[in-house]
Design a protein around this nucleic acid. Structure first.
Lengths: 221, 221
DNA sequence: GAGTGTGAAAACATTCACAGCT
DNA sequence: AGCTGTGAATGTTTTCACACTC
């Protein structure tokens, strides 16, 4: 007999502002000791440094997870967050560019722990090809396509210099990759159906700079 | 005679959403060839991938910079953006933790170019102390305070493992640092008057993961 | 009593659309 | 004619406040 289930494309339609906070909540739960099994929105809000109504509203998009008068069960909450974020699918990722930043990313334990397997490292510098980093052998970029097909890679992480980043992005799209995380300080052209997120380290500093206290010499009539 | 100016604490009060886009505009301007001297909000919007009314509204917070019927003068715009973001002050920064990520940050040219001078690298691993990276000698963390005082350091960049990040943050605050850019995957306690921005690499991936196309097995009654 | 889930209000952000300047 | 600067309209996000459940 068939299971009482159906394969449907979930159109959960969670607001973007909420999606950005879900990984944060997940991280908060990890910081809680293992003895506690429940948590209130108030407590979680305190750890995540957001408003408690925010927490309740955000979590309510995932369904009715809490118990009135009691709170949320931590392990249910964690499972639901992981499910909603697609972390149980076990996506494969590759990293292109194994300079310092690429190596840092390859070593970064947080990925494997959180459902992302790095299955390939690529670089076109002959000095780097065949080097072993974090248990993987660096391969030339020409082999990217076959690795992507073999492991059904979903995510490409660009850690190359800016000059070549757009070219790499184009190649990743050729490899049928649907998500790109870009660390190169350039604006990648966007392509329909491909999600691109960019992390620009110097932009982060510039934002901080704005909020640094400074007197300003201002013209006064 | 005195200049027709006064030293006032500017309370420019630019909305946070706009502040986040200012570095983006600055980057767009850098990508334009040197021959062109003017740009319209429409063109800039295209490069930055935002709406053109957005560009005009954002820039209008910096003052009346454009010329109706003509557009914006690129060099005026750049100067004004740099001024507003506080990039002409030449803030000094230090990096704590010189593993792969810290090294990547130390080598990252984008900082020096954009008004941030990295004046110190710190680590407590004896194997790393005294190593030279990107023209700087790695020093033990115990020397942080004296370097901060000497160079009047404004920004601390944490690139350590998560375990020690909070401890380092506390020490940075002791050093009178007012802005922290944290790359360790932990939530730092916040302190009044100290700006903390965290970049969590794995959170970025998790957000991407949400938007990856996936069918979801959903219970159906 | 404690704490969720959620209408309704308030705050914030984006976009439209056009008057006004060059 | 072309393009800015900005009221007004719309859309999104946050927060309040409270009915409801345990």
């Amino acid at each position: 007999m068939l299971l009482d289930c159906a394969l449907v494309k979930e159109n959960s339609n969670i607001p973007p502002a909420t999606v950005k906070r879900l990984p944060l909540y997940l991280q908060c739960l990890e910081q809680i000791d293992n003895e506690t099994s429940g948590i209130s929105s108030k407590k979680l809000a305190e750890i995540a440094k957001v408003n408690d109504a925010q927490v309740r509203r955000d979590l309510s998009y995932l369904g009715t997870l809490g118990t009135r008068g009691v709170g949320y069960d931590i392990s249910t909450l964690r499972n639901q967050l992981q499910l909603e974020l697609g972390l149980v699918e076990g996506w494969s990722a590759i990293i292109i560019g194994v300079g310092n930043l690429g190596s840092a990313l390859a070593h970064y334990g947080g990925f494997q722990d959180r459902g992302f397997g790095v299955v390939g490292l690529f670089d076109d510098d002959p000095k780097k090809i065949n080097k072993q980093i974090a248990g993987l052998v660096v391969k030339p970029i020409s082999e990217m396509k076959s690795v992507c097909e073999k492991y059904n890679v979903a995510i490409g992480i660009i850690a190359t210099p800016g000059k070549v980043a757009q070219d790499i992005a184009d190649q990743l799209i050729q490899c049928n990759i649907k998500s790109i995380l870009n660390f190169a300080p350039v604006l990648l052209k966007n392509t329909p159906d491909v999600q691109i997120r960019s992390v620009d380290l110097s932009q982060e500093l510039q934002i901080l700079s704005y909020y640094l206290d400074r007197p300003v010499l201002k013209a006064v009539k």
